[in-house]
């Protein structure tokens, strides 16, 4: 039971962080379908950082992992920003390209590094078991992960930034009616860049949380199994509001956690449902949730439409 709570919380943290990222980006008017790829890149940065940091100071490790993964995620979303904000490219196409590219880039980089270290090692796996211990505080049998705290803080900060600061309100204006925002002197391009970069940072952190959730090594060929898209479903279910996103993430996190721990419950194990069914759960739930909530959902009005100063 404690294990279930633990996994629910950690997966919910992943979803919260990434969904908040998507939330910032969409409020500024850019649909970031590349979050999946951003997660992979953040995970790559974080994993390499953890590998390098093995055995060093506990506090510094945690801070550095967060910083590095956020920065890699941000750097990666620059590609999205350039294409979609400055060159007005199709946001769906570019986001998809980023997703595919991220897995390829991460695999190539990790393989190249592994081969460089040891010519016989052609795997795309990074091991970070030692540094991962810094992330965890044991309370009884419950393993508290610092990232759970990070996620909660992120929700609070996102709420304050979006609704209580000038920046947040301006950002949201750019996603609702960019022409009007521009007419009162807000630089729409700048705001959209801010939204996209924030989504990169949060997505990147989400990525590293995802890979450290259960295991202590990661095979980069596998990517993050649609988690970036689950996060988008969480965002839609949470109707683009930070607090609702946090709550929605708990629900999705619970179903994702089930697939990790169902064998620990004797009555669930006795049902002899194949593990594939549990693996399918989060995706099925999100389809159902989307089917019932999308009809009346209020997405930012101008999202997905490239802003062109000259057009009316």
């Amino acid at each position: 039971m404690i294990l279930l709570i633990q996994y629910t919380l950690i997966f919910a943290s992943v979803l919260t962080l990434v969904a908040l990222g998507g939330c910032f980006s969409e409020h500024s008017g850019v649909i970031n379908l590349g979050l999946e790829g951003v997660m992979v890149m953040g995970a790559l940065g974080g994993a390499l950082c953890m590998k390098a940091m093995a055995g060093s100071n506990y506090f510094i490790t945690v801070i550095l992992i967060i910083l590095v993964s956020a920065l890699t995620g941000m750097a990666y979303t620059v590609l999205l920003g350039v294409a979609c904000i400055n060159f007005k490219a199709d946001q769906t196409l570019v986001g998809t390209a980023l997703n595919i590219m991220a897995t390829a880039v991460a695999t190539v980089i990790v393989k190249a590094l592994n081969m460089h270290e040891n010519p016989d090692n052609v795997s795309a796996t990074v091991q970070y078991g030692q540094a991962k211990k810094s992330l965890i505080v044991k309370i009884g049998t419950f393993q508290f992960n610092w990232f759970m705290l990070v996620a909660v803080v992120a929700v609070a900060v996102a709420f304050v930034v979006l609704y209580k600061t000038k920046f947040g309100l301006r950002l949201m204006a750019c996603g609702e009616n960019p022409q009007a925002a521009d007419s009162v002197g807000i630089n729409v391009y700048k705001m959209r860049w801010a939204g996209v970069l924030i989504s990169g940072a949060l997505g990147g952190i989400g990525g590293v949380v995802y890979i450290t959730a259960g295991v202590s090594e990661w095979k980069f060929e596998t990517g993050v199994a649609g988690f970036g898209f689950l996060a988008l479903a969480v965002m839609i279910f949470g109707s683009w509001k930070p607090v609702n996103i946090g709550l929605a993430a708990l629900l999705f996190g619970f179903f994702r956690a089930l697939s990790n721990v169902y064998s620990g419950f004797s009555w669930l194990a006795a049902l002899k449902i194949p593990s594939a069914v549990y693996n399918m759960f989060p995706y099925i739930i999100s389809l159902l949730v989307l089917a019932f909530t999308s009809k009346n959902s209020r997405a930012p009005k101008a999202e997905g439409i490239p802003y062109d100063k000259g057009s009316r």
Binding site: T92, F229, Y283, I284, L287, S297
Partner: peptide, 16 residues
């Protein structure tokens, strides 16, 4: 009929 973004539902159905 439910206004679900086809990219997201598509990805979910890929994994299912």
């Amino acid at each position: 009929y439910a206004n679900v973004n086809e990219v997201i539902s598509g990805i979910m159905l890929n994994w299912i």
